[in-house]
Amino acid sequence: MEKKRLYWRICCVAAIILSIITFTPLVIPQGVSKPELGGVPYSLWTSFVITVLLVILTYIGTRVHPGMQNEEEDL
């Protein structure tokens, strides 16, 4: 249970960090579209990666959420 709580907290911190760095020049340098990835402009491919990571984090969150332990409801 304690481990789950720790993993859940790590997920929360990671989600917050990912969300915040999106609004820094690391992801949206003003007026800059390079380096491209497969022809996709910089801000688009970096923010796409962040979106996918957030969804993956959400999935991990479902596995480690500490409250799930107490749930007796079935799927």
């Binding site: 997920c11 999106t22 801000s43 923010s47 979106t51």
Partner: peptide, 15 residues
């Protein structure tokens, strides 16, 4: 950057 406006925000929203 409209992708960030909606898709990144939706990614954070589902979390």
């Amino acid at each position: 950057a409209a992708w960030i406006f909606l898709a990144v925000s939706d990614g954070a929203m589902v979390f």
